[in-house]
Design a protein around this nucleic acid. Structure first.
Lengths: 162, 162
DNA sequence: TATAAAAGTTAGCCTTGACTAATAATTGTA
DNA sequence: TACAATTATTAGTCAAGGCTAACTTTTATA
């Protein structure tokens, strides 16, 4: 978690051939894409936890470790460790043997994440992906879309739905 | 790398509310989405390496560790370790102090990966994402699309490109 | 052809995010 | 209320994928 420097992350202009290098796709620009991807991998787990905690609170009034574990398909021990990390990041409040709550910051992240999730699902639906697949694939794609892409998705969906 | 069992990966039908649980989105179905996502995270690095090696071979006739490192934005030591792993997976052939070559299996993976990459870029372009952003975002999204979604993208692009 | 520069290798360390197993606390119920 | 079941915590392990530093091999050039 210390690999991605937004300052050096200039968006890379397109190559011309197969996906290969060109005058525009220099090695270090390509490197910045990969750094961006690595950074996304690191943050998406955090976002998944936070979004799920928000869902549980909304549905059941509280987010218990055991439910988080069940829905993520991991063990309670893993959840416990992760919650400690989220707490340290000031995304959740958690006391021993009590369920987990979101801080303002955490809720903000959850909302943002959830909105992205929905936009991606909507876009997939519009381009013809069936609903089940859309929900399955959105889990993952949502973390890799820049604000620009999400905005484009939103606009596109608005213009094309129904 | 031993978490995802395709056998239990039934696609999850959609929920109805905010993204929350419903009769269709049972906890273990949601868990399978997250397992799928974790699996994708594990394989995408492999795919990035393999695709990049293919690019380098096509462009320069060979893939040297130093060039791989430069384009991925990692150190040579990291590349070395990863190449050893790729070799063990029978995706590349590599001899000490020589550059890296793809096995048939590796080239197959590279082609598939590259094709997915291009489809995603094309889809993004069609829905209005600018070219630079499309290339940046495709790095990452390409690994998270199911065959169904890619097929839908392909069809959609075919129907909509100017 | 020496020798310096570049590239590759190896060893050792770190963090993340999983796991299991053992233990402790809480909760529900007979 | 006591006890059983559920839930949470802690400790220790593992593999992946990064890193740096030291060293070796190859390549290029003075």
């Amino acid at each position: 978690m210390a690999d991605f420097d937004p300052a050096e992350d200039e968006l890379t202009p397109p190559p011309e051939g197969t996906g290969a290098i060109s005058a525009h796709m220099t090695p270090d620009r390509q490197a910045s894409h990969f750094k961006r991807a690595r950074h996304a991998r690191e943050t998406e787990i955090i976002e998944d936890y936070v979004e799920l905690i928000a869902d549980l609170i909304d549905e059941q009034g509280e987010a218990r470790a055991v439910d988080i574990a069940k829905r993520l398909g991991v063990t309670g021990a893993t959840v416990n460790k992760m919650v400690a990390r989220l707490k340290q990041m000031n995304l959740v409040n958690a006391e021993p043997y009590r369920s987990v709550f979101l801080t303002d910051e955490g809720r903000e992240m959850a909302e943002a994440s959830r909105e992205r999730h929905h936009i991606v699902v909507a876009l997939l639906r519009v381009v013809g992906v069936d609903e089940a697949t859309a929900w399955a694939d959105a889990e993952g794609m949502e973390h890799r879309c820049s604000p620009e892409t999400l905005m484009a998705f939103k606009e596109f969906v608005k213009r094309h739905k129904s």
